[in-house]
Write a protein that binds this DNA or RNA. Structure first.
Length: 259
DNA sequence: ATGGCAGGGCACCCCTGA
């Protein structure tokens, strides 16, 4: 089975692309979406179910919003981070085919001197606390989403240009390392990868054409799932579409095993 | 030093994204 994540930057605009992509990628058992930007009352549940999928979602008007689309029913669905103020709809967990999936849209942070920056770090700390418990309950766990953190300089098209900015700052990178220290692995780095591999490119200034991007969308796997992971790839194809999202899907392939 | 592009709200210019 494959699991995938994609920040769609408005599901209202991108739903046809999402359904086309799922049809073209039949091994994707579950797809985590971020930035749906839809209140639950307006979520296209019927359209997604009519296409043969199951779906869970947690959204709000204008900003944020997360969803998980799956080919099998979703169990034990929970929105948000337990014990954390969840006005911003940025987290969703569900179990699909025996795998615990946690879909995250980590706050952007805006800039290092913004109030949103400490909010981002606090959000990540709360996520880490929660996932520690979640991992004890669910050894087969994957955290998928837009982390808004480029883990290392090799995940940045121009590290000198980005130095000192949000998405690459040492405290953000340290927060990601704290998350990994729970026993999670960055699926993409389990394998040899092409240099200059990114998952987001700025709409402005021909960012995609210049490959001026960042790798900020990640799939983190528990030790058990990392053992069964045989590939992790970034699918750049949707970024070439008309009206693309600025992010592209990231896909991890998990070999079937028992237990 | 600034804006570039895109989406949404909601009323046309502003906010946010990354």
């Amino acid at each position: 089975m494959q699991i995938a994540t994609w920040n769609v930057n408005s599901l209202k605009v991108r739903l046809p692309q999402v359904l086309d992509w799922l049809a073209a990628n039949p091994h994707v058992a579950a797809l985590a979406l971020q930035e749906t930007k839809l209140e639950d009352a307006n979520f296209p549940k019927a359209e997604i179910e009519a296409a043969g999928f199951h779906v869970a979602f947690s959204g709000q008007k204008t900003y944020n919003g997360v969803a998980i689309i799956a080919r099998e029913p979703l169990a034990e669905v929970s929105a948000g981070i337990p014990g954390f103020a969840n006005e911003q709809k940025r987290g969703l967990a569900a179990t699909v085919a025996g795998v615990r999936l946690v879909c995250v849209y980590v706050p952007n942070g805006q800039s290092l001197d913004s109030d949103k920056y400490p909010y981002k770090l606090g959000w990540l700390a709360a996520l880490t606390d929660w996932l520690k418990d979640e991992l004890e309950r669910s050894p087969r766990l994957a955290v998928l989403g837009d982390f808004n953190i480029a883990p290392e300089d090799r995940d940045v098209h121009d590290p000198a240009q980005w130095e000192g900015q949000v998405l690459v700052s040492p405290p953000e990178r340290a927060a990601l390392q704290q998350l990994l220290a729970l026993g999670l692995r960055d699926a993409f780095r389990l394998f040899e990868q092409p240099e200059k591999s990114f998952s987001w490119w700025d709409y402005r200034g021909l960012g995609f054409r210049r490959n001026a991007g960042l790798r900020i969308d990640h799939i983190l796997l528990s030790a058990r799932l990392a053992e069964s992971c045989s590939a992790c790839t970034i699918d750049k194809e949707p970024r070439r579409h008309e009206r693309p999202s600025d992010h592209t899907p990231v896909i991890a392939t998990l070999e079937n095993h028992h237990g």
